[in-house]
Simulated scan of single mutants.
Amino acid sequence: MTTPEPAAQAVGAMLRTARLRRMMLPEQPAEHLGVPTQAVIDMEDGHRSITVAELTALIRLYRCGQDRQPLWGLLIHAAAQARTARDDEPGHARRLDACVRQARRVRWLSTALLPAPLQTPGYARAVDEHSTYRSGAPVPPAACPVYVLDVHVIRRGSGTPRLMAEQVEHLLRLMERGADIRIVGEDHPIPQLPGHLVEMELPAGRIMAQQDGQGVDYHRSGALFAHIDAALAVTDHYSSYEALRQAAAFHLALVEAGPAQTSWQTSTEGTIADVR
């Protein structure tokens, strides 16, 4: 069996999340569509094509009419067997989150800004992004994600030190609760990417989503995944926690000293580097 196109897998994962939010079993949409239950499961896995009529019926059943246009657009990409499918309609970050929640493995790579799941509401407003949607019945993620961040992500925002101090403290609390956050230092540079790269292992195979401020592109798995592997090979929990602790101390020092200070200074070694 050939690997389904990224758009087909993404639409299926989004529909499964929508069904779970309504606390429905697969039998209910199957009866609604007049198809076998396995057909709905295959549809959600990305193994079965979905018609416009079926998609329209499911959107009504799950009461997610706000996603009608973007899901139709992704469905057209899947029907055309497009290698890249773009979702640039309002709510694209929420739909990406719905897709991520059905993955068996999730790995984020961010080199400029923090990915949405790690952002506090204040940070999201400051960088003009939207916090991840969380209304409806809770749907636990299928896999514990790994976040690989360039060290410059946590050094940003020297002009807003109080906000960054709160954000980095939030990351430290997340790590203390078990979140797998890796900070890659300057001695192991990774390609500077626009937006965030998300690797998802869905039931039918791996796909990649690249999110920027205007939308999300869904691709087949690509060579960039090797950079995630390389980054994970040179990081660990302890060095990443220390990098966050130093970043928190730096931003707190800026709060006290004022925004005129523009250098990066570690709290333990006293080394200085430019803040980017």
Results as ranks from 00 to 15, higher is better:
V198H: 08
P117I: 04
A233N: 12
R155N: 09
A249F: 15
T160M: 07
H237Q: 06
R206Y: 01
R105G: 07
Q167P: 03
I50N: 05
S267E: 02
A204V: 02
V275C: 04
A98M: 06
C64Q: 10
G159H: 08
L15Y: 05
R22K: 15
L109F: 10
E201N: 08
Y133Q: 06
P191G: 06
E54G: 01
L224R: 12
L58R: 01
S263K: 09
R19F: 05
Q265A: 07
A142H: 01
L232Q: 09
M23W: 13
V234K: 14
I41P: 08
G178I: 05
Q66Y: 13
A233M: 13
A142L: 08
F225W: 12
P90F: 02
P259D: 03
Q167K: 07
D150W: 08
L197I: 03
L244G: 04
Y218D: 00
P141I: 10
T271A: 12
Q28Y: 14
I59L: 15
D229Q: 06
R107S: 01
M1S: 05
A85R: 03
A57T: 01
P141E: 04
E269L: 12
R22W: 14
Q265G: 04
A98E: 02
M1Y: 09
A143C: 02
E199G: 13
D128Q: 11
A209W: 05
L25S: 10
E89D: 13
L74G: 00
V106Y: 05
R155M: 13
L71M: 13
Y123M: 01
A39Y: 10
Q214L: 11
M208W: 15
C99R: 01
G46K: 04
L75M: 13
V52N: 06
S267V: 02
D45I: 02
A78C: 04
Y218W: 14
R60P: 08
G159K: 07
A116M: 06
R105T: 00
E44L: 03
L33Q: 07
R173L: 06
R276L: 09
H227W: 12
A8V: 05
S263M: 11
F225P: 00
G205Q: 10
A18C: 01
T271M: 13
D212N: 15
R83F: 13
L244A: 10
Q66F: 14
V11S: 04
S267W: 09
R134H: 14
Q38G: 15
E89Y: 15
C99A: 10
A243D: 03
V234L: 14
A57H: 00
S135I: 10
H32T: 10
M1N: 06
V275W: 01
